[in-house]
Design a binder for these strands. Structure first.
Length: 229
DNA sequence: CTCCGGACAT
DNA sequence: ATGTCTGGAG
């Protein structure tokens, strides 16, 4: 007997490896390294929450010009100044508090970044999730891009193309989304890194708010009747 | 579910 | 003028 798809489970099974190859063959490596240093990656992960990356670059540029891109300086920066510096990234009041909460966790509980990154991947993830303002996506972005751990990052683009192709129920949780894709892949940092970058490219170029399926590398996998709303 | 918010495409 | 952006908290 066939097992029914779970309430929030996938309807069809996403052929993760084939999808990756289709995207990579079409667009090649995206050469993503979202930051010059590990701290910069962490800062970027918070600033980019629901925010276009271009605005994040502006904010990080301002932090650099203010010479605030070291852990002690960033941590010592008065909250009001921090708010002003990251203003181009939007949500600047909440994000300033979130950055402060993060640097406080690192400095007070671990002293500095190397000690934090010495934690095991599960412990590091828990430690990040305890910080107010760090949710699963931000935590996994830091794990993958700053700490080099095999954490599969799920973002709005991931959910969008997965649900449109019928591989994911609209109500699926973060972890269900991650498993639906990463479940069919080897647990590999380089692969996760490249895959996420390609998915972002997909979301910007093809699987936009209004889908442009013509010429999309994933068009062969569209369900009958085209993409779902 | 609503709020947070400036920058940019449409 | 409206909609969206590599989310998360209350």
């Amino acid at each position: 007997m066939k097992k029914a798809a779970g309430r929030t489970g996938t309807r069809r099974r996403a052929p993760a490896k084939k999808l990756y190859r289709a995207l990579f063959n079409a667009w090649g490596p995206q050469r993503w390294w979202p930051g010059r240093t590990r701290l910069e990656v962490i800062v970027g992960a918070v600033l980019t929450q629901n925010t276009a990356w271009g605005n994040v670059e502006k904010a990080i540029g301002r932090l650099r010009r203010a010479d605030a891109l070291s852990l002690p300086r960033l941590h010592a920066l008065p909250l009001r100044q921090l708010e002003g510096l990251i203003r181009p990234a939007g949500y600047f009041r909440v994000k300033a508090r979130r950055l402060r909460a993060l640097t406080t966790m690192i400095v007070d509980r671990h002293g500095a970044l190397p000690a934090l990154f010495r934690l095991s991947t599960p412990d590091l993830r828990d430690e990040l999730l305890r910080v107010n303002g760090v949710g699963p996506e931000t935590a996994d972005s830091i794990l993958l891009y700053a700490a080099g751990r095999p954490a599969f990052v799920v973002d709005a683009y991931t959910r969008r193309f997965m649900t449109r192709h019928g591989w994911l129920a609209p109500k699926a949780t973060y972890d269900e989304t991650a498993r639906a894709l990463a479940g069919g892949l080897p647990r590999n940092v380089r692969l996760y890194n490249e895959f996420h970058a390609l998915i972002v490219r997909l979301g910007k170029d093809c699987c936009r708010p209004r889908p442009l399926c013509g010429g999309c590398p994933l068009a062969p996998w569209l369900p009958r009747g085209g993409p779902r709303p």
